[in-house]
């Protein structure tokens, strides 16, 4: 029953979504509007499950003094501390706002900014022209990198146009192929889930 019930729910609701969106009668009955609200509610439950899961996982890390357990403690304190403050004074309250603006925003920006340092280091240490393909990749990367920035046009007139053509034509063509392939795969997986052939989401080992 632990497998069959979720499978049944998945199949019924998968078909219901298809019926609500693409069938005239489904649209007339407003099924999509009802299921949209259920999606929002189930997202709320997903967050709650996430909180419980994080607490169990990191709680055990702290309890058993596993490696890097102080980080787990920081996570638990931050999660419940902020939650308590936000529940007490709402997320727009002065302390919650101060914590968000003073901690979360700069930490988020700093994490993203660090990528520049990693890219620079990787460019020097890893980007090697070992093969013909790697050489082509490097030449394209340099043309695009400098061409899309103002310096490209300063160095060679027309460089920007070349870089833009590269983005518009070969890159776009490759990306379109990847996107179409991914969407077809997505549709196939969705069909397999609806038909009960794909069971990895139930915690099993993939296809039956």
């Amino acid at each position: 029953m632990r497998k069959e019930l979720p499978l049944l729910i998945t199949t019924v609701f998968g078909l219901l979504m298809v019926f609500g969106r693409w069938f005239w009668l489904g649209q007339l009955w407003g099924i999509e509007s009802i299921t949209d609200q259920w999606i929002i509610i189930s997202n709320g439950f997903a967050v709650a499950i996430g909180v419980v899961n994080l607490t169990q996982l990191h709680g055990r890390n702290v309890q058993r003094r596993r490696e890097h357990w102080p980080y787990s403690l920081v996570l638990i304190v931050a999660m419940y501390g902020y939650m308590a403050i936000a529940l007490y004074e709402t997320v727009e309250g002065p302390t919650a706002t101060w914590l968000y603006d003073g901690l979360f925003t700069p930490i988020g920006s700093a994490m993203f900014a660090l990528i520049a340092f990693y890219i620079t280091s990787a460019a020097y240490r890893v980007f090697r022209v070992r093969t013909r393909e790697a050489t082509v990749l490097m030449i394209c990367a340099v043309i695009t990198m400098l061409g899309m920035a103002p310096i490209g046009e300063v160095l060679i007139s027309g460089w920007h146009s070349v870089a833009e053509w590269g983005m518009d034509v070969p890159v776009s063509a490759a990306f379109r192929g990847i996107t179409i392939g991914a969407r077809l795969g997505f549709m196939a997986t969705a069909m397999r889930i609806i038909l009960g052939l794909e069971r990895a989401h139930l915690g099993g080992y993939g296809a039956s």
């Binding site: 520049a116 980007f127 090697r128 490097m138």
Partner: peptide, 23 residues
Amino acid sequence: TQDVISLGMVFVTLLIILGNVGW
């Protein structure tokens, strides 16, 4: 930020060249 981006890209390009020459 445009000057920083431009010269940052030049710096990365120089590092790629230097790294490959060294290699």
